[in-house]
Structures are given as C-alpha cells and as structure tokens.
Design a binder for these strands. Structure first.
Lengths: 228, 228, 228, 228
DNA sequence: CATGAATGAGCTTTCATTCAT
DNA sequence: GATGAATGAAAGCTCATTCAT
C-alpha cells in the first residue's frame, strides 16, 4: 500500500476522492434497493439480491449500511429529494385558470412521479410506516407536509379567485391527494396481480380531476336533491 | 382484584386446562388474527403469537385453520366478504335519492368497517399483495370484485335516474373507492405516527362525499373555465 | 338394551364378555396397524390413521398400546404365528423327490405368505430392526431360526438322498431364503414405485427355483470352465 | 495433552472459526450423511446431525445441498452410480470365461461396495422408497436400471458364448441381484442384532455364486428328477 | 476496501401423546 | 371405557449478519 501524498490530499480535498467512491457505492446500492423494495416489498427483498443488482457482494452492502432497515431508511431519504421548490415555483408563476392549474398539477405529478419508480416509495412508506415510526416521522416532515402545503396553495388560489367554493383546507388537500396516492398504492400492489381489469392511469386521472373540478366549482344551478 | 368466591369458582371452573370450547375457538382465533395482522402485517405476525393472544397453543391454531394463509382468508371472510349480501340488500331497497344513497353508503362503510379494526385488512392487502399472490387473488375475487359491483350499482342507479352524469363505470367506482381506501390506509399507516395533524374521519368523509356528489351532479350552471 | 341374564353371565365366564371387547379392540387395531405399516411404513403411518381404520378414536389406541412403538411390537408378535409346525409336518410327510419338495416349498410360501399382507412383516422387520433391537432379537428367535431350520431340513433331505450336492448348511439355507426375502422386500418397496418393469412373482420364483435346483444337482456333465 | 508448539500453531491454524474450506465441505458432508443415513435411516436423520458430524452448522449444509433429498441424491451419486462407468469398462474388457467374469463381478461388488458403508444405501432405499417416491424414482433411474443393465450384459455374454443356458433376462438379472441385495439388507438390519450366528460374507457369496454358476451351466448330464 | 463462507435464530407445520369429560 | 380437543417438541429450511481472509 503506497503512502498517500499527505499534503496535496489534505490541501485539495482531503475527502473528495475517497468520498466519491464511498458515495458512489451507496448510490448504486440505493438504486438497487429502491428498485427491489418497490418491486417485491421490504421483507421479501433479500439483502443478497440488492447487492447482486448493485454489482457488489453481500458483505459490501453491510459495509455501507449497518442493517437492512438502515438501507431502507436511506432509500427513503435519498428519494424524497427537493423537487418541491421547483414545483412550487412552476405553480406560482402559472397564468391560467386554477382549474387548469389543477389539471396541470395532476398530470405533472403523474408524468414526473406517479408513473416512475419513485411512486413506489409512497407505497413503501404506507406499508412499512408502522414498523419504522422514526422513518414515518421523517417522511411526514420531509414529504407530506411540504406536499400538502403545495396543494393547499393551489386550492387557495382557486378559492381566492372565486373559482372554487370555499372549503376547510385541512381536508381539502385530501381531495387531490387521495386519488393520486390511491393510484400509487394500487399500481404497486393489487394492481399487479389482478390482470384483466387493468386500470389506465390517464383515464383514471382524467375522470378524477374533472369530477373534482366539477365538485369544487361554485354553486351549480340546481343542487343535488336531498331527501331530508 | 376482588377475592374470588372460592365456592362458585370451583363450581364454575374446574376445567382449567383442557377447556373444551370447540365452538368458541375459531372466533377467538379470528379475532386475535385480525388484531395482529392489522397491527404487524401478515408476514410479520407469527402463528404462535396469534395462538397465544387467543389463549391457546400453537398446535391448536392449526387444528382449526390448515395454514396461516387459510387463517387470513377466514379473517377476510368473517370481516368483509360475509357482509356484502347484507349491504347489497340494504342498498337495493333504499328509497331516497341516489345522492342520499351514496351518503348512506359512505357513512355506513365508515360506521361498520372503516372505523373498525377490519379496515386494517385493506391496508394489509395493499401492503402484502405482492408477496402473497394467492391471497391477492383471493381478495380480488372475494372482496374487490363484489365491492366494486356494489358501488357500480349505486352509481348506475344515479345515472339511470338522471341524477348523476353518465360516466365510464370502470373508472367511476374509483371516485367512491379511492377516498375510502385512502382513509383506511392512512389510518393504519402514516396516520398512526404523525400525531398533531389528526384527521377527523367524519369531516374527511363529509367533504369527500359532498364534493363528489357535486362533481357527479348533472351540468352545473356555469362550467369551470378552461383556458385552452 | 335388554337386561342381560345376570346369572348365566356371572356363572359361565365372569369376564368373557368384557374381555372379549377388551380383546377384540386390540385385534382390530393390530389388523389396521399391520395393513398401514406395510403399506406406508412405520414412520409414515399416523396413529390417527390406524385408529380410524380400526374404527376407534385416537385416544382409544393409546388405551391399549402405550405408544406407537409398542403397537409396532405387538403387530409383529401377533403375526409371526405358529405356522411352522404345520409346514414342518407337511414337508416331513412329503413323498416325492426333494426337487419337487423344494418347488412345493417355494410355491407354498408364495401362496400362503409371500403374496399376502403378511409378507410385509419381513420388510417391516428389515426396515426397522435397527431401531427395535429387542424386537429384532425376538423375531430372530421366533421366526428366523425356526424358518431356517425348516429349510435346512429340506436341503438335508436332498443331500441325504443323494439328490443334492453336499453343502455347508449354514450358508445353504440362504440359497432358498435370499430369493424369497428379496422378493418380499421388493414387492413392498421399490417394486411399488417403478412401474413399467413389473416383476411377475410366479415367473421370478420359477426361474429362481429351477436355477437353484440345477445348481444344487450333483455333478453336471461338463463343469463350467475356470480360467485359472 | 502435549504442549503445542506455539509457533507452528500460530502459523498453521490461525483460522479457527471461519475456516474457509469450500472445496472440502461437500465431501465431508457427504461422508457424514452416508454414515448417518445408513445408521438411522433417511427420515430419522436430522439435517442438523449431519452438519454437526461434518463439523459445520446447519446453515452450511444447505449452502451446498439445497435440500435433504438433494443431499441424499448426492450421496448416491458419489457412492454408487458414479462408479458404474468404471465397472462397465472393466467387465467389457474382461478376457476369461463368463463364469470367471461373474465370480469377479460378485467379489468386486463385495470388495468395493458390499463391504463398505455404501451398501447401506440399498437397505435405505428398500426401507424408505415408499415414503420418498421422488428418491425412489431417482434411485431406480440412477442405480437400478444401469445396475441391471450391467448384470444383463454379463449374463448375455455367457449365453452368447454358449456358456450359460438361455434365459429370460428380465428375471435372470435377479439371480445375481437377489443374493447381493439380500446380503446388504441383512448386514444392515437383522444381521446387526443377532450376534452368534454371524454370516461370513465371503463364504456366503462363494456358495451363492458357485451354485448359481452350476445352475446356469448348460444341460447337466442327468437332470434332476421330477416326480410328475 | 471487498469478499463470500459460515452462522444460528427464527419460522411454519406435523403429530404422538395426554387428559378432562 | 371411549373420546377428541389440546399440547408442544421437533424438523426442514431461510436469510440477515459476521468476520477471516
């Protein structure tokens, strides 16, 4: 083992090189883990499979992550990312009607998240939250709260501009969230087994969003009858 | 702890060990299984734990259910699919407007399923379907298909009576299903960890159902603007 | 239920009736056990199956036999029977050539033992002897020794009458025994699985016995060549 | 206990626990398995015992053999079927009389198989075939058929060269097989318990083979009398 | 750093045996 | 005597984790 050039190393970036390798490996492992966790679930994914898909040996995985659970945590942390600011900006500068903004929201979500591997993370979190309360709290803070805030702002815009009827925002956000998250879950669970009845996501979203927009629109001419 | 009346004790309970209660056993085991499956998931629940919670030994469980999967199926039948006929009849004989029928649907669902332990089963299936394809197929056939059919009939009633706008029923059922299932999932996963932001189910359902009814109602006076 | 005639009962045999039941049960159990042990082997036969075939409950079996092993021992003891004296007499009074006596021996064995369930006992003993040394010793004494003696006498007759060549009787008996026992084993083990190549017992025995008789006959015209 | 030479010790055996001996493992496991299977039977031998006797843990056994049945198959291949080609070649190049070839066959069989632990495998199969049909099928294909073929060729050689009388080969092979297999069975079952009457295998084989050769030899001067 | 042989706790399921009735 | 519900010790196999190399 050659002596390292201590000076240059400590001068330029004492850890860049080593860190890169140290950081690259985990990245490959995290990718592999995300893929397999989403595909087969946490419990059914064997550590060895993850290692193999990442092109390393079983031992190496445990060199970077002290346990399968820690790997899971890292996968979630890695993938919740910072896309919210970008979307927030897009939505803030949107010029059209709020109905169109909401349509854009939903289709953008599908295009950029829902249809990708990353949508599996929601499913993963829903499935495992109870066994990883610490992670659940983390997810709540890093993903759910900012996500809810984003939706809240869109709905508020509609209300403020007289396009949408007023509503309790605490529950309003779920009008948007529930259909999307349900789709994510479905896609990654029962939707994979029950062939024959296949759900077309675009059609699903289209009906959900149009019904929602209709439902949010201010007073229809003739309200639905109530028997009582 | 009150002192036991020794005499009555020896009269009532001389059968401490080999307590012959064949008829009660399955019910006790199903209760225990439901509780633990919902709490910890299917795979993570050990057969022995179920037996212990039911107050019997491991072997006894297998005396009544030939495998853990059969136990699960029995739990599903007991708690969900067994009730469809009753609901179906209730809905069929409903006299009021379809809007009210849908309101009844949702609140009945919440009262009889959603608010009980049994709502954990949906979460369970979503979480584990992929690892237990046979269970998934069973659930699809025993719960999802009949459940969808029930909803489809309600919506069709509204359409047929000119109360709801026409729609593609394949996707229409998800307008009802998604909010309910999302609530089930949430309650049993992330909802358990993130105290503080507690969701009131009745309020959640109220907003969902009213928005949905509004969304389904025939042509509002002034449609939402579309920019394009 | 008619009142029994107490007097005659207590007079004739105070215990005959009760004993008969007590004795009949074990007999039915032993029959059932023999059948199943022969058919499926000792280990693979479940105590409950034996009880069921005997028409009693599981508990009853253990009322008469303290364990499955004891049941096995009883089965063997029950079935070794005392047929040897009868055969011994038949052979002693045989009038023809010893070759014919031997032919009779073998075909009689096949007709009365080999082709019946009882041949399974040899297989059972061979299979389990090592696990039941006590039983093996018993079998050795009650079955093997008398059986060998029977065969020995037949062969000795042939030698004494100048029909068979002289031989060491200790090993001679196996010339007769080996083909028969091999057939028993085969029939109850590999012979049951490997269809296609089915062995016809009569043909098998015919060739064995004729070859043996030829082999035992005194000096053939031209001895087989020996190279050395 | 002699004082260890500390130096050499630290040189030779620093690898006490995680001894990396991948190549040696299967052989050690096969040896242990053969020993225990023969001693206690297939079903009664626990995987853990085999591992223990081989000096490894339970898990390690399954690292090399995917199941207990596969382990058994490997034992059979290692000890029996793997040797047929060698024997086949030896027999094919044999130069002497077929009588001598048969004598060689039998004594070779005894020397290389019959007298070794491996002869227990035949007994094993006879005892357990019915409970493990898959193993039985494997054994039939891997051992019985090639073995029979080997014997058939030897006998056919004798017939073709005018040394042996013609016979139905289907049954002829059992003239050779039965004595050998009976000896194997005996040795590993009743033969282990009934001391006193000990069978000398060489003498047993000698009488069997000479009688057989005499029996197979072409027409003796004076055939055995038949009374009818 | 990386490897992969080795470990052993853990899981479902079976079944001989017990014992209250 | 007879029953059958209940038991719990096994046993085969898996897989996260360790650690000598």
């Amino acid at each position: 083992m050659p002596l390292p050039l201590l000076q240059s190393e400590s001068t330029l970036a004492p850890h860049i090189k080593h860190e890169r390798r140290k950081d690259a490996r985990p990245g490959e492992l995290l990718d592999a883990a995300l893929t397999l966790f989403v595909e087969k679930g946490f419990a059914a994914t064997r550590a060895e499979e993850v290692a193999k898909l990442a092109g390393v040996s079983k031992g190496t995985l445990f060199l970077y992550f002290s346990s399968k659970e820690e790997l899971f945590k890292a996968v979630v942390r890695e993938n919740i990312s910072g896309r919210f600011p970008e979307w927030s900006a897009e939505f803030a500068s949107f010029q059209g009607s709020t109905a169109d903004l909401l349509r854009t929201c939903m289709s953008t979500w599908w295009a950029r998240l829902g249809s990708t591997k990353a949508s599996g993370i929601s499913k993963l979190m829903m499935s495992e939250a109870r066994n990883f309360p610490e992670l659940a709290a983390f997810y709540q803070q890093e993903v759910i709260q900012p996500g809810n805030e984003l939706i809240r702002r869109v709905l508020q815009r509609g209300v403020d501009r007289g396009e949408f009827r007023p509503m309790d925002m605490k529950y309003g956000v779920y009008l948007v969230l529930a259909p999307m998250l349900f789709l994510s879950m479905w896609k990654h669970s029962l939707g994979t087994c029950c062939a024959g009845d296949e759900l077309n996501p675009e059609d699903y979203i289209a009906l959900q969003v149009e019904t929602l927009l209709n439902g949010l629109s201010i007073a229809p001419a003739k309200p639905l009858n109530t028997t009582h």
